[in-house]
Amino acid sequence: MPVRRGHVAPQNTFLDTIIRKFEGQSRKFIIANARVENCAVIYCNDGFCELCGYSRAEVMQRPCTCDFLHGPRTQRRAAAQIAQALLGAEERKVEIAFYRKDGSCFLCLVDVVPVKNEDGAVIMFILNFEVVMEKDMVGSPAHDTNHRGPPTSWLAPGRAKTFRLKLPALLALTARESSVRSGGAGGAGAPGAVVVDVDLTPAAPSSESLALDEVTAMDNHVAGLGPAEERRALVGPGSPPRSAPGQLPSPRAHSLNPDASGSSCSLARTRSRESCASVRRASSADDIEAMRAGVLPPPPRHASTGAMHPLRSGLLNSTSDSDLVRYRTISKIPQITLNFVDLKGDPFLASPTSDREIIAPKIKERTHNVTEKVTQVLSLGADVLPEYKLQAPRIHRWTILHYSPFKAVWDWLILLLVIYTAVFTPYSAAFLLKETEEGPPATECGYACQPLAVVDLIVDIMFIVDILINFRTTYVNANEEVVSHPGRIAVHYFKGWFLIDMVAAIPFDLLI
């Protein structure tokens, strides 16, 4: 008679799926529990143990900040960024110097990925580790590398530091407007667009060049630039800015003055950032001319202004700041037409079709709590990747769950009947059967004279019903998954307890 339990259901295979997918890609990662103190490590794979030199037993239950890997060259700011990422709910990448158990130093890129439950609360953290440099290539500990984003994938490793954006290309926007319009339909740009040429040739750093990471940081200074100062900065030398009595002219307006920039070969870094931020506020060169004239017309309804409409929906549905990093990277690809469009465009503009998908598509409701890094690593669709929660398995109709209350009560009843059979069957065979043979035949009273025979008949009927119930009862397979398919249940029961239950259900007393 089957006594099969499996009270692990309803099970959740999400954690096993993450481990299996990460292991298949030869990654070095740990999984931490966000619900406990210090976000203790609950799993670390073999790749991480080989990377740091510690065994799994030495890593388990330690804080996922990996303070046991810190050393003299470990930056405090990087460690603080990892700790801050564990307090938030967004994906974050941090470069930090770690030390192995043998004392060797290596520069590592740590990717902190939160995993949320159905309520939107962070319950786990996945920390992925990628070695960037070994100890002989690690720089000085005073050099802070965590304020910069990861290198873009479309640049060669040897040319990542030679990417320079020439400031004269930004200063000569109005001069290039006529050349853009003359391109017409034969050019790649839309009317009114501004073409910015980027020099990728390796050259020595000069005062006129600005690194790509500095251009990325310009967006942080746009908020500090007032509207009046932006307007004066875009007017140009024809209309000098008016300053109040006793007030000095704005240095932001002076930063885009061609006369002032041409007199000296070098520009201050602050002026460069502010000038680029001011130019980015204009949607095209037409807006710059309109600002000089004193009238700013409404933005025209053409394809170039609607190019950012799908980007707005993608940004609203993005799951991490990696989408913004990807957008900034692609927006700086050289030799393309940049349409400086305000994100607050007309909502009635139709979304044009684009061959290049900048932001990841909208994630469906079932995966809105899973970050983009987890979705990318697992390579699963929205119909396959579940949320991290207890999910009731989908069972067929008329199927009994093996952990249901009805099955528990039924098993206790069958257990009592088995005990009765084990006690009274030998007793009936030894004593009652002998008395029946010696006594007179009682054929007239039937079952009324033999109450134990009636009980034995009921017990046999219950055993037959138990066999039928076992054909529709779920079970737990070797992978700790609840199986509810009727065919698989029948095959599993035939290979197991079916023969024993059938022999126990045969009414031998009635056959004798």
Rank of each mutant, 00 (worst) to 15 (best):
R100T: 05
P205V: 06
V215R: 06
G47F: 03
P361I: 09
I330H: 08
R252D: 15
E372F: 03
S179A: 13
P202D: 14
E90P: 03
A203G: 07
V194L: 01
T375W: 03
P205E: 15
R76L: 10
A85K: 01
M291R: 15
L15E: 01
G186F: 06
T13I: 06
L338M: 15
K135V: 07
P352E: 04
V180H: 15
T17K: 12
A32T: 03
D259N: 10
R366W: 08
L127V: 09
H147Q: 03
S264N: 04
T216R: 12
G53Q: 06
F106T: 01
N317T: 08
P241T: 13
A160F: 15
K364M: 10
N339Y: 01
C49M: 06
L349T: 12
M218W: 11
Y43D: 01
G224S: 14
V180M: 07
A175V: 01
D259F: 15
R176K: 06
A277K: 14
A290F: 01
S243Y: 15
D119N: 05
K161V: 01
D16H: 12
H70M: 11
S283W: 01
F48W: 13
M218R: 13
P241Q: 12
H254L: 07
D46L: 05
A350V: 05
G53I: 01
A57S: 12
Y99A: 01
L107S: 15
E134S: 11
V110M: 03
V370Y: 11
Q11L: 11
I96R: 01
V370E: 03
Q335W: 07
T375F: 14
M291G: 06
A203N: 15
S179K: 15
P10K: 09
P299W: 05
F163I: 06
Q61D: 09
E130H: 07
S153P: 13
D219I: 02
R159C: 08
S351W: 07
E23V: 03
S263V: 08
M60E: 03
R159V: 12
G71S: 01
T305Y: 05
R328Q: 11
G24I: 06
M124Y: 10
V198H: 04
S379G: 04
I123V: 09
G88Q: 08
A85W: 01
T152Q: 12
C52A: 13
Q11M: 15
A160N: 14
R366C: 04
R366Y: 08
A303M: 07
